[in-house]
Write a protein that binds this DNA or RNA. Sequence first.
DNA 1: TAATAATTCAACCAAATGGTCAAGAAAAAT
DNA 2: ATTTTTCTTGACCATTTGGTTGAATTATTA
Lengths: 218, 218
Amino acid sequence: MPLNKNKIAHKASIRKKNERLILNAAEVIFAAQGFKGTTISKVAQQAKIPKANIYYYFPTKDILYSHVIEDICDFWLQSDDFFDDLNSPAEILTRYINAKMDFSRSRPLGSRIWANEMIRGAQYTKDYVNKNVKNWLDDRIKIIQRWVDNGDIDPIDPRTLIYMIWATTQHYADFGMQIKILNGNKQLSDKQFETAKKNIVTIILKGIGASNNLKIAS
Amino acid sequence: MPLNKNKIAHKASIRKKNERLILNAAEVIFAAQGFKGTTISKVAQQAKIPKANIYYYFPTKDILYSHVIEDICDFWLQSDDFFDDLNSPAEILTRYINAKMDFSRSRPLGSRIWANEMIRGAQYTKDYVNKNVKNWLDDRIKIIQRWVDNGDIDPIDPRTLIYMIWATTQHYADFGMQIKILNGNKQLSDKQFETAKKNIVTIILKGIGASNNLKIAS
DNA sequence: TAATAATTCAACCAAATGGTCAAGAAAAAT
DNA sequence: ATTTTTCTTGACCATTTGGTTGAATTATTA
């Protein structure tokens, strides 16, 4: 039955396609309006399908929201991989900061939804933070602590460093509007954004004493 | 008419007292639930007064919200004063960062409401950012640029530095719940918080080359 | 082709919510 | 003491919103 695979693939494709359509639309609305501010009608409008259709794929608003959150978490696991343990502190941190900055620019919506979640008390994300994020963080803390113990970098608190990187990089997504207004109501140009990236990397690397063997970007 | 002053004072006091009561309650709810998630009933419950009473002092939810925002802005003008131009870069930035960190710890609600505002596109705050915040920022940029030109600090982009400080310090307010969960579900202790403050100051000062003539905190 | 399963969608419903009102209680002014 | 003003509050209303239903349409299978 060589057709079987195709049939299944096609069957799944209508559902998958529509789920994706709805999730993308929902991401836009949740990011801009928050959980309560998001109505299924607005999502439907954004997705250009009738409202009842959304309920066909996602039985409740809560379920839709958790799928959006899950989506975001899946995506973020990628950027986390940029923080490996194969290179020098300076190389690893440069890569990680740049990756997080690029995510903030190319996909700010997820970051905003996440920020909203945390502000509201991590109601839907407590478990995820408690498990995945905490594990990830604890691992990186160990890595950074090893750098400190080896004398590769200054004796800084690893946790504070990570928070600093998260805060600074995600600021460019979460506070994009503020940055835009303060930039004369113009989105940061590619050049401005690259300047920001370079400066952040430079300041942090030097700040923790990790830039010794790297040329400072001019 | 020596009583006149008293009368007015007293007259004003009932209103002022209740407005304050309501604004404080509203701040709690707006911070935790966002604009749409806040209902006047919840605010009333928080303030322990009947709902209609709130409408007596604040005719609409929007008006109540803008008063809360105004309140926050007024308060923040204080911390801005910590960034003067009378001392060395290291002293000024240390003072400013510490002040912002302390605000994040003692009054996180305002920061969260502000973050929510920015995420949602600064709908109620565009003018304020465009005027007051922008002016303040442009002034500080000039100050920092002077430091750079004088060779007091490394040649960094002043704007990026300020954003870094804002992001990092406000992270402790906005992402308080995340930080708590990642700290084993315990709020940061005073000692942990002081460690964070010290580390942030140390990393930033060294990162911009301003710590030359300051002893590094141990 | 006939039957079955998956998908679309207008119309509907109950609960929640922003906001109103009018009547009574307290305070202030005369 | 009484009139006027300010303040309080339960009851009420229109709109919005999360969610349902059932019939029509399209796709899949036998």
